[in-house]
Amino acid sequence: MVLFIEIASWLLLVGGAGFCIVGAIGLLRMPDLYSRTHAATITDTLGAGMVLVGLALQAGPNLTALKLLMVLAFLLYTSPVSGHALVKAAYSHGIKAELDVPIDPQQVQIPERPARDAPTDSARGKEGADDVSD
C-alpha cells in the first residue's frame, strides 16, 4: 500500500510538473492570445490538479490533504471563470485571433511559424465565438 502511494504520487507529481511545463511552452510559443489562453488554462486545471493530488497523497488522510483538495476545487472553479472573462474582455477589445486575419503579405509578423493553412475555418470559428459569449 505504501509503495503504491509512493508510486502514484511520483507519477502524479512528475506528470503534473510535466503538464505545467508543456502548457508554459505553449504560453510562450503559441501565435495569438486565444491559443495561449488555451495552453495556459489547461495547465491551471490538469497540471495543478495532478500536483495537488500527488501532494495530498503524500500528506496522508488529514486536514492538510483536505486543504490541498480544497485548493484544487477552488482552482477548478476560478481558473476557467477568469479564463473566460479574460478572453471575453479581449474579444470585446477587438483582439483578433491569428487565424482570423485574412492572409495579407504585409502582415507576416512571426516568421518562424509554419504557414497558416486554414483561414476559412477561422471565419467560422469567429462566429462560433459570438455564440459562446453570454
Partner: peptide, 22 residues
C-alpha cells in the same frame, strides 16, 4: 497585449500556489 500579461500573471499565481505547497 495587456491580455497576454494578465494571462501570464494569472498562470504565475497558480504556479506560486503549487510552489508554496510543494
Amino acid at each position: 497585449t495587456v491580455f497576454d500579461r494578465i494571462l501570464a500573471a494569472n498562470m504565475f499565481g497558480t504556479k506560486t500556489i503549487l510552489l508554496i505547497a510543494a
